[in-house]
Design a protein around this nucleic acid. Sequence first.
RNA 1: GCUGCGGUAGCUCAGUGGUAGAGCGCGUCAUUGGUAAUGACGAGGUCGGGAGUUCAAUUCUCCCUCGCAGCACCA
Length: 648
Amino acid sequence: MAQISLTFPDGNSREYEAGITAAEVAADISSSLRKKAISATVNDQHWDLQWPIDTDSRIAINTMKDLEPALELVRHDLAHIMARAVQELWPNVQVTIGPVIKDGWYYDFDRKEPFTPEDLATIEKKMKEIINKRDEVRTEIWERPKAIAYYEERGEPYKVELIESIPGNEPLRMYWHGDWQDLCRGPHLQHTGQVPADGFKLLSIAGAYWRGDSDRPMLQRIYGTAFTNKEGLKAHLHMLEEAAKRDHRKLGREMDLFHMQEEAPGQVFWHANGWTIYTQLQDYMRRKQRADGYVEVNTPQVVNRKLWEESGHWDKYQENMFIVEVDEDHAREKTVNALKPMNCPCHVQIFNTGMKSYRDLPLRIAEFGACNRYEPSGALHGIMRVRGFTQDDGHIFCTMDQIEAETKKFISFLAEVYADLGFENWSVKLSTRPEKRIGSDETWDILEKSLGEACNAAGYEYELLPGEGAFYGPKLEFTLTDAIGRTWQCGTLQVDTNMPERLGSTYVGADGEKHTPVMLHRATLGSFERFIGILIEEHAGKLPFWLAPRQVVVASIISDANDYAEEVAAALRAAGVRAEVDTRNEKINYKVREHSVGKVPVILALGAREVEEKTVTVRRLGENRTSVTSLDEIVSELKKAATAPDLL
RNA sequence: GCUGCGGUAGCUCAGUGGUAGAGCGCGUCAUUGGUAAUGACGAGGUCGGGAGUUCAAUUCUCCCUCGCAGCACCA
């Protein structure tokens, strides 16, 4: 047998016979490590203790203290243990797949009867029994025909299909947790007892399509969450509870920002408070865009189908469009229109008027464009995914040579805006050429490279999403995260050479010839609706002062202070601060509580002392202490705080 | 759109085959109180919409609609 050399994290090496397993290496170090070991890391690859090592390698033995591999294994073994529990409880259930995901795992089952919440408790109990049995985990590599025959015999067609989809040159690995077998790449723990019985919880049941394909059967998915110990689980469940309190739908109601109702699904009724946030944000964006070289335009809402046919939307996007037919008796002919689902074709119409020269490029056109899309009912989500929304849309008409510089400029712009609005954590994704696409590979090469390099030049790293681009060009996506960790695309930049050509846009080049411009579709916030939803969740309703709909409540403690309260509020309003008075016949405790719950950032309390001394007692949201300030001082301070960051 | 679950007062939620209840909020009165809920009294609901079963439906059944979770979708 050949000898191999294994190098440990401390730099020491030992010689072993080739084919030694990681478990044997652990045993060679110490018998206690052999017991505590959960897996190994071999040449940066997560390695099952049972797998043999055949070549010189770097090796580290992992225990539960190595959090990353530990969580991976605990969650993965729990997926198998849950599937085993389900099949022990309901032998007719077919198993499919069960991967590890953020904070936990899921497993998809095919079962006629729906799982109920009570079933989750039953399954959990069964899982704990399996864990307590400390059943050994074994693995083997199987020949394909044997594996297929095995699953066919057991009536598990999903597994057969999975095996058939695995490339022929890849070995098929089987794992057993006790006697229960599953096809799995591994690695896994040594025995079921290594899973902490009090570190996991089954969370929910939901439908999910087999292989993510809506034309295939819908399975039942059970989600679970797991950590290496009870405390980790408890902390996570607590975080979920806290996050639920930040839900923009809940805060929207509590802060009286907006509501939605059955007669207008997916559309927002903005109340005065919410509309204040909206208009503040819009005013800010308008100033920022103007300063960044955009011209602002406005285009029609109801547009004849002819334009949508020309743009290609009628063919490809009709299902998602609100169609408006005009069929009045006095109409000479019936016309078919659609509410615009996006602004780009309209902006092209503006570009197309008159003659454009290369000297006009890049031409940056912006619009706060109201769009309507008939989104699938199941996709709607508060104000984050709606059917009527307004994009902070913009289209940059430019030459190929200008793409990179314009992209870089846009990324810097977006970064400034996000920073002003209090976002530090956002990510960039670059979606590249999809299978179905137009344009030559050379063009795609150039476009993808331009976006990537612009990103790097602006100082941001991006995640690659291969094949996720639009059919006409690659795109950058800028995503933000909501309260419970769901990510939402907000900003975007897409390169499009198709639409300008389709709609006949040209400019005269330096050579005197006509050329087709490139069009960059870009949005910073994405839509006001979605962005405000994210904004509310990010700040848990406690918006930055300049955006807060209700900035100051001047509350009187005694009725003798009412006149002074009006005076203070008037002074603040004159300084551009949104101030209201609360002279109701209520105790100051009551007023403080009510306005704190309402997320008012500043409460000014006024009693006899303040009237006497022309001062105010300031209480800021989130602080228990108060401070006394002169009226002049607080006015100038809050005036500054109420100023948008771009005007400071 | 699909699977599952839900819709009772402005909000959060109990409840029942014989047309409904709590807390908060709202209104009135009393209270002038110094930083997260003063007290008393009062008003407020065709129980999401439609159909069916029944002597009788908010309750059972079906359809529709909206919402929630997830999936699919997201130019």
